[in-house]
Design a protein around this nucleic acid. Structure first.
Length: 647
DNA sequence: CTTAGGG
DNA sequence: CCCTAAG
């Protein structure tokens, strides 16, 4: 924590400094490609005066903007296009949207959609308040919604810079927001002048507005002041959904993160800010996040492997992102745009260092499932890409920030690193350390290079999982007869195991539910026994009947392709057990049914055992080579009328 | 790598 | 389930 503080301070200082730097840099570099989009929401009074929009307006817009940002970022990233969207209300009262694109490459579709959305919002506002909104006019207070500006340089861009450098394609979104405050938090945040640093550039002020940048204290205060209800509202606005969480800390952190994330890349500044905020939270309640981060990064040797792995992975990911961002920053400074790479080179503000991260995080926290893999993949990819050039830094200020940041992130155990990344980490963690992740981690505990691999793996697994589900379902449905005997087994087992797995691609990968723990020897051992389900047993028996006992690998391929666990060895072992059971059972057929059930030890239906015995006999009678073939198997199944049903 | 068998 | 030897 101490470290963190220090870092924060640095960042802040840097940030402040950077404020100036940023402006200068922005000015200096004509080409800042990716600028945040700035939305200014202002109402024009009858007399032509500009009035800050109301909170509601702001909120709405803000929400929108935030949402947009992410997408916008993408656009910007991909293309350098500069897009300037202005929403204007004509005197007639009509709302007009203007969209100018610096580059044709930009994704207009998205932009337009968003614009429309904005338009709607504006319309709404108009109707409700009958006020006019004009954009482009500089307002004293802007709320910078777009976090993208995150980068040191960017922040500046938003308000002033942009106005100054119109040529710059940067898009900044600044929201003007009413001073009247609904909630103190917003208000305070919005007021840049108050808290923040007045670095010579107005930009800083603007920048500070939404971003916690001002000062942690501001940001914190803002959130802190809010009541839970207010926080809920804010949450809703931010995430577009309600939350039932009553934990104030959680809400605050979440919101703060959201803001940060939206800023995304700006890792440095923003993150720092966030960090502060986050950090504060941490102090109160969120130690875990920081701790986890630290742990992962710092302690490699932690005993808790799972935990460590997961965190490590996360850290790694972050690193990658950071690296990438860094690289990009250096190369493209502001424009992160993929396309831009060639074009832009040097120094632009680094805009989005961590966009990927953000997304990744978001996903982790909010979505489970498949989306993950893709994202992960992307991020990995990006990271890889970024790797290439680590060397030159664009601006001193930025550089410092980055370097510091990076350092921390990368290797650091110190809080500083955590600071920057904490948001991410915490998010991830918050979502809950899922086994999937853990498993994922396992796969690529070591290097990011593996990331790609990992992602691939995940994908594969996911596909497997898919196949698996159907398979299971099919089986269960197809084998009603058997289930009769032990309905619960089939049903219960099947559902729980399979379902969960499917949900998680990751878990799927390594072992689904089963967590493996490293053994002293180095081998991974299954933590939990995977109880053999009736379905599995049936499959096994069927497989044996088809392929013959001993051809486990083949059986596995045929019947257990969907089960990533259950190795051929497992099949063999299980078969061995089945044989044992069947042989034991054989002597007293009478008790079969009863016996197995009563004991409870043998959930396996008698029928199956019977069949097993038959198979065993068959095998014994006929040499495996001969009998093992399909024909023999078919005969066997035929032999037992009952069994054929379930088989 | 897959089997087979023991622990 | 794990581990190991053997083909």
């Amino acid at each position: 924590m101490e470290t963190v503080v220090g870092i924060e301070d640095n960042d802040d200082g840097k940030f402040e400094d950077s404020g100036v730097d940023r402006s200068s840099s922005a000015l200096s570099s004509p080409k800042q490609i990716s600028n945040p989009i700035v939305y200014k929401l202002v109402r024009v009074e009858g007399d032509g005066r500009l009035v800050p929009a109301t909170d509601d307006e702001v909120m709405e817009v803000g929400d929108f903007l935030e949402c947009e940002n992410s997408e916008m970022h993408v656009v910007a990233d991909t293309g350098q296009s500069l897009e300037c969207i202005s929403i204007e209300r004509s005197s007639s009262g009509n709302l007009r949207l203007e969209c100018s694109e610096g580059t044709a490459e930009a994704d207009l579709g998205k932009l337009n959609a968003k614009l429309q959305y904005i338009e709607q919002i504006l319309e709404k506002v108009k109707e409700e308040e009958k006020q006019r909104v004009s954009c482009g006019s500089p307002v004293h207070s802007h709320v910078n919604i777009d976090s993208q500006c995150s980068a040191d340089k960017f922040p500046v861009v938003d308000g002033k810079v942009q106005s100054e450098n119109q040529e710059t394609p940067s898009i900044a979104s600044s929201l003007n927001y009413t001073h009247s405050n609904q909630s103190g938090s917003t208000d305070q945040c919005s007021r840049p002048s108050e808290g923040v640093i007045e670095s010579g550039s107005s930009a800083s002020a603007v920048y500070s507005n939404l971003k916690p940048d001002l000062s942690m204290s501001d940001g914190e205060i803002c959130l802190d002041k809010l009541s839970i209800r207010e926080l809920h509202e804010l949450f809703k606005v931010t995430f577009g959904r309600e939350t039932t969480v009553k934990d104030k800390q959680w809400l605050k952190r979440r919101i703060a993160m959201s803001l940060t994330n939206s800023c995304d890349v700006s890792a440095t500044t923003f993150i720092v800010k966030d960090n502060k905020i986050v950090r504060k939270f941490e102090d109160n309640s969120g130690n875990m996040n920081a701790a986890s981060l630290i742990t992962s990064e710092t302690m490699t040797e932690e005993e808790d492997v799972n935990f460590k792995d997961s965190s490590a992975v996360k850290a790694r990911e972050i690193d990658d992102n950071q690296v990438v961002s860094e690289t990009k920053l250096r190369n493209h400074s502001m424009g992160y745009g993929l396309e831009d790479e060639n074009h832009q080179t040097d120094q632009r503000a680094a805009k989005r260092i961590r966009k990927p991260t953000k997304r990744y995080i978001e996903e982790l926290s909010e979505n489970e499932s498949r989306e993950h893999s893709p994202r992960l993949l992307i991020s990995n990819r990006t990271a890889g890409h970024g790797h290439v050039s680590p060397t030159s830094y664009v601006r001193p200020a930025a550089r410092n920030a980055f370097s510091e940041l990076r350092t921390y992130v990368t290797r650091s155990d110190s809080l500083g690193g955590s600071d920057v990344q904490i948001p991410c980490v915490s998010r991830v963690r918050r979502s809950r350390p899922r086994k999937d992740i853990t498993s994922l981690m396992k796969f690529h505990p070591i290097g990011m290079g593996e990331a790609a691999k990992l992602s691939n793996k995940l994908l594969e697994h996911s596909s497997d999982a898919d196949s698996e589900i159907p398979d299971n379902v099919l089986k269960s449905s197809s084998e009603p007869v058997k289930e009769k005997q032990c309905p619960e087994t089939g049903t219960v087992e099947l559902r729980p195991e399979l379902r969960p797995k499917r949900a998680d691609p990751f878990s799927h990968t390594s072992d689904d539910d089963i967590v493996t723990v490293p053994t002293a020897k180095g081998g991974m051992r299954r933590k939990h026994h995977r109880a053999w389900t009736l379905v599995e047993v049936i499959k096994l028996v069927e497989g044996v009947s088809r392929c013959g006992a001993g051809r486990w690998s083949e059986i596995k391929r045929l019947s257990f392709s969907s089960y990533s666990y259950r190795t051929s060895v497992d099949l063999k072992d299980k078969w061995r057990n089945l044989l044992k059971a069947s042989s034991a059972l054989t002597p007293s057929p009478a008790d079969d049914g009863i016996n197995s059930r009563k004991h409870g030890t043998a959930p396996i239906p008698e029928k199956i055992l019977l069949r097993v015995r038959e198979l065993a006999e068959m095998n014994s009678q006929v040499p495996p080579s001969y009998s093992s073939n399909k024909f023999a198997a078919g005969a066997g199944s035929l032999h037992g009328g009952d069994r054929s049903g379930y088989l």
